[in-house]
Design a protein around this nucleic acid. Structure first.
Lengths: 343, 343
DNA sequence: TTCTCTACTGTGAACGCTCACAGAAGCATG
DNA sequence: CATGCTTCTGTGAGCGTTCACAGTAGAGAA
């Protein structure tokens, strides 16, 4: 009976074992592992065969120790916890980033910085070089973590344009303003003229930009701004519900409403239902995100699709480029109107 | 002008720098770092001061290289992707685990093993010792990854009782059967006698156990089993909708239905609404999970709360214990009936 | 005193890898 | 034949830490 069968973890093969097995030196094995430049085809083949036979897997700690890279990146969430819970976009983004990184064999470390304590610990961890870069999800302005990381020179890509930071930080975002414009134009095309809006938080770029798009299109259509048609929420379902009630009270003649997130739109639908307004006959409702909430709603929501798969891919691409020494970059991706039953 | 201000990342201080600064040896600094045994109070203090002054953070790669531990754990998801998207429980679990680990200063690596390729890569990664242990979310039976990890002797804690695996694997689960019993008893106490059930997938422990609880309570109440009242779903909203339609067709006199997840219950509510049945007047609906979907539903769902915060804490506790050499353990946590408007 | 024990401290030697360098072999050029 | 260039290979050093071990000092017991 051998140790190897008992579940006790035996010592894994090292680069040395592979070298011996292949009849070459450590250096040659290392070269094969790192791209295979300056390696003869014969050696190349021998090493690969030896790797297969021994089941060798590189020890990343040893590698990191000398290269100074960790070959891992952090996915940092500085939002308060509720948002993480409620927002279905996080799931999609997180999954997309994990997969995009996996394609490069780079693990993703999930980091939650809700409390001040966690913030400190995580900043310390990151600036100590334990990750090569950070994917940042924090749309609220004045985020101290982001600022610290930027100053420490940590490669950083934000999801959504960070408001507070200087222009030297990379970000990837959907074209919020254009998406909002599409939706409002769509509502106009249906003949609606008293179009309300429930905005997102106005200290987030999404909140600001979507509202701007709304205002622009109405202005272009020659419709006078009416502040009774504008209320703001915080992306939560409950705030959508409250917002709709306020709108109904302030502007009972409203015939459409653009809601800056699907989740809030769910709340709006509930409030309209309670108020006896039919959707879309009396009031058309447009959402934003095309999250699962959009199809879960009754009626199903017309909404603006954010290209989350592309966003996550781009975030990873830009981050890796930056780790590789390139300059920060901003990427803006187009959105798409998805027509469903609510308009 | 010094390098340190330019954002170029300078070489971080090592244990050597701290030792020099504190006037002691590497060994003493190392001892302070690892619990402070056999260190004089004076040295202890000097080292801590030096650490503060230099901003020293331990290089985990160097440490891991020699200890053989990675001081990180994987959070492995082997479910197909849809579940990850739809199921709000994942968010809560993931967040809870991340935080519980953070308290021990252990980062969480998120790993998605959807495709065969990813599965192979991740198994390789884990068995190579790049994580000390794995938190496994994979309730479906016959999961090859879990089996491989178990055989490789990787510390492992599953969320929910793994069906296929032997008894040697740790798991933490809510008491599904007992929760189901509570719900069905609750429905009985309301005077309902024709109680239907939409089960979860029957190759998952949750699916099986919740159905078992349902059957037990009805049997104990002397109510004959009626297979027209039993349909099964896959935890998705759509399957709840389909299930409810089937139930209404097979057993039009149904006066209550126990649904094995809140998400499915949302679907059930939609189907009942379409069929003109009032909830709870005509048909009482009970869910399971107490996810955000429960309060998002109209009417709000009576449901069974799973103690997700405790589950994640226990998973981490059991995993760390196992990494520390303890034997596998099973933990079953009680659920709680949450009464809302749907019953 | 002398010995033993405990509390504490310093010093190589690893851990497994990459990197810089030196050197060998092959080939073309002067 | 020497010289240079390119391609390939092996070797030693060192990354920052922990661990085993040797050693010191002081207290208490013989």
């Amino acid at each position: 009976m051998t140790m190897s069968q008992t579940g006790g973890r035996r010592r894994p093969p090292t680069i040395h074992d592979v070298a011996r097995e292949a009849g070459v030196s450590r250096g040659t094995v290392s070269r094969v592992l790192n791209g295979g430049h300056y390696v003869s085809p014969a050696a190349q083949e021998a090493v690969n065969a030896a790797i297969r036979r021994t089941g060798y897997v590189v020890n990343r700690h040893a590698r990191s120790l000398i290269t100074g890279r960790s070959d891992s990146v952090g996915f940092l969430l500085t939002e308060p916890q509720e948002r993480f819970f409620e927002d279905p976009n996080f799931n999609v983004l997180l999954r997309g980033c994990t997969q995009a990184l996996a394609a490069h064999d780079i693990p993703l470390l999930l980091m939650l910085a809700g409390t001040e304590d966690e913030r400190r610990r995580i900043t310390r961890y990151i600036t100590a070089g334990h990750v090569d870069g950070v994917l940042l999800v924090s749309s609220h302005s004045g985020d101290p973590v982001a600022e610290e990381l930027r100053e420490a020179g940590v490669p950083l890509v934000a999801c959504g344009k960070p408001i507070g930071l200087g222009s030297k930080v990379s970000y990837v975002a959907a074209d919020d303003r254009d998406g909002a414009r599409d939706m409002v134009r769509h509502l106009l095309s249906l003949g609606r003229r008293r179009i309300g809006v429930v905005t997102g938080p106005l200290d987030t770029p999404g909140g600001v930009e979507r509202l701007a798009g709304y205002r622009e299109v109405l202005a272009e259509a020659g419709i006078a701004a009416d502040e009774r048609l504008v209320v703001s929420g915080d992306y939560s379902r409950a705030s959508g519900e409250a917002g709709a009630e306020r709108l109904l009270a302030q502007a009972p003649d409203m015939d459409a409403v653009f809601v800056a997130s699907d989740l809030m739109a769910q709340g709006v639908l509930a409030a309209l239902h309670r108020a006896g307004r039919r959707v879309p006959e009396d009031i058309a409702v447009g959402g934003f995100d095309d999250s699962p909430a959009a199809t879960a709603a009754t009626p199903e929501l017309t909404t603006i699709r954010q290209p989350w798969d592309r966003i996550s891919n781009e975030m990873v691409r830009v981050l890796l480029a930056q780790i590789g020494g390139e300059d920060p970059a901003a990427v803006i991706l187009p959105t798409e109107l998805v027509r469903r039953a609510s308009t």
